[in-house]
Design a protein around this nucleic acid. Structure first.
Lengths: 246, 246
DNA sequence: CGTAACATTGACCTCCATCAAAAAATGTGG
DNA sequence: CCACATTTTTTGATGGAGGTCAATGTTACG
């Protein structure tokens, strides 16, 4: 697959890259960032467009400046598995394969900074600190993948959906927003393909949580958390810290 | 979680470490290996012993010299999810968390080379090449985790078990063995907890594959593949190369 | 050899997928 | 801004894959 990582909150605005602020590029030291922005070329995508296409040479990486994307695999028989959702500031790169086994699909309007993998590799070779920080980032990503494995393997539908809402809100706050309400940038089917369910089951789970008073749904693509403690309990979100993809 | 990676086949015998040959430590350059073996202390474990315990400080790493282990998470309610199986030469390290969210359990007799994470980090900081190779290794591990996500989310029981057998044989050959028969070092329950099934379902799937003539089971912990093409087809193992955990 | 742990097989039931229809949201042109 | 067409979401009815519980057969080990 590929590295999909969210970069630090700590670091720099990304004007040179995105034209709007984003907190990104945490894995690179200052020289690295300077070099990086020299290489970057920006591109916009609309809903349903592939930013990276599955089965194409794994020679491109990108940084999501604005909007959202899903990383997914599509089999010959038409089965879909979403591996991750990307938020502004998230990074996609580093398949070990010569060809991407997964594609990245724009959910709505997207701005992305594309760069070649070769350039990125060179950059990383030159800046040891960047490589080390990236290694730590990848370790965190591995943690989150294990979390996903647990969710897929050992939770039932309601628990999966509860954990997912927890994850959505975690991301929302991590991106600097406040409040108990957050947007849902992906479709029910996308959520289902992430959690190993059907769209109908996702919908049913949402209504169940709404009926129980745990959440409310002012609109289909907006969720308000009314009882965070119970949501977390239902979702079996244990890991105190890195509650990435629950 | 943690990095669990199998090291290169290319590299060195591990006598200084394991007392018996193993092809390991591929991520380190020569100076790195020399330094590494200075730090190593070896330990043996018996079936059912924890090599690394969940919820303990994530300050230890280890290299499996001989035997097998499972990496698993155990929740308060007693749900079990196996994240990976470790084979001789595999490496376990690098949780991003301060405390391991997963434990490593010996399957039968095990010899492991334990080293402290701090020492390993220092080592990696000093040897840039080792860090880079490790990064590539982690990318491959991420690929395999995505493969696991697909298996857990979008395959049915028979397909999961077929893919698992494929994975077992892949590992077996990668470790230098030949032939269509290979040992199964883990229990049915372990397999079930890896694939998101129950032991009974694994058992049923195995008999189904046996009845179909795809495999045979000379003993419970030994599987012979009679029809590799069909096994692969049933297991939906697509990725030509990195067919890690199917 | 005997006992305990594990694996297989069977009967039953639950949760979720599937199929289908109604309701809501989204987009488009007038 | 509104009417209409299309897509998405919700809700309902039904069936099946796999979980659960229980009994039997097998393997591993003291």
């Amino acid at each position: 697959m590929s590295l999909i990582t969210d970069m630090d909150q700590t670091s720099l605005p990304c004007d040179g890259c995105a034209g709007r602020q984003g907190t990104v590029c945490g894995a690179f030291d200052d020289a690295g960032i300077a070099a990086l922005f020299g290489l970057v070329r920006q591109q916009s995508f609309t809903s349903g467009q592939w930013i990276i296409e599955q089965r194409q040479p794994a020679d491109r990486a990108f940084l999501l400046s604005s909007g959202h994307a899903s990383v997914l695999r599509l089999t010959a028989q038409g089965r879909r598995q979403v591996i991750a959702f990307l938020f502004p500031g998230d990074f996609f790169a580093f398949s070990a394969e010569p060809v991407y086994q997964y594609g990245a699909l724009a959910l709505g309007d997207v701005m992305a900074c594309l760069l070649s993998r070769r350039q990125l590799d060179t950059l990383l070779d030159r800046h040891a600190a960047a490589g080390n920080r990236l290694r730590r980032r990848m370790a965190r990503l591995l943690d989150s993948h294990a979390e996903l494995a647990f969710t897929l393997g050992r939770k039932q539908a309601l628990e999966k959906v509860a954990a997912f809402i927890w994850y959505l809100h975690f991301k929302h706050h991590k991106l600097g927003h406040t409040g108990d309400e957050c947007p849902v940038p992906m479709s029910r089917t996308d959520i289902a393909d992430f959690l190993g369910l059907t769209g109908e089951s996702v919908s049913r789970a949402l209504t169940a949580l709404r009926t129980e008073g745990v959440i409310s749904l002012p609109e289909a693509h907006r969720i308000q958390v009314r009882d965070p403690a119970r949501l977390r309990q239902i979702g079996i979100v244990e890991s105190g810290l890195a509650a990435e993809p629950g």
